[in-house]
């Protein structure tokens, strides 16, 4: 597995960003950038050559679903793996996220093992540039 992948973690709670960042470090991914909502994430994504996006759903400014739609609508970003990591638990929302092109969906509270499995599954299902 390529451990040089560049991750962007988007969550409005700084504690959750730190938790995810620590878990990613434990998995060997040291290149992690943070953003606190979709509005700040989008310019970072457009200019930053990120390999993987992990985003919350419910955030002020731009919500995670809108960020996902913006990513999929952007020619440069449309193939970026997007893992939704959220407390949103309605079936209709998960279907909505799937229809919008989410690559994986992890419900909070989550375990380190679940996060690892979903990242591995997404990376395994696509040809990741080395």
């Amino acid at each position: 597995m390529n451990k040089d992948l560049k991750f962007l973690v988007v969550d409005d709670y700084s504690t959750m960003r730190r938790i995810i960042k620590n878990l990613l470090h434990d998995l060997g991914y040291a290149n992690v950038t943070e953003a606190d909502d979709g509005k700040t994430a989008l310019p970072l994504l457009q200019n930053g050559n990120f390999d993987f996006l992990i985003t919350d759903w419910n955030m002020p400014g731009m919500a995670g679903l809108d960020l996902l739609k913006a990513v999929r609508a952007n020619e440069k970003l449309k193939k970026l793996p997007v893992l939704m990591l959220t407390a949103e638990a309605k079936r209709e929302q998960i279907v909505e996220a799937a229809q919008a092109g989410v690559s994986g969906y992890v419900i909070k509270p989550f375990t380190a093992q679940t996060l690892k499995e979903k990242i591995d599954k997404i990376l395994g299902s696509m040809a990741v540039p080395a």
Binding site: N58, E88, A89
Partner: peptide
């Protein structure tokens, strides 16, 4: 729903949805 509802709370948010 596109803004999100926040976490499901046991005893308040339940059912097939």
């Amino acid at each position: 729903s596109s803004r999100g509802h926040g976490p499901a709370v046991p005893g308040v948010d339940h059912g097939a949805a």
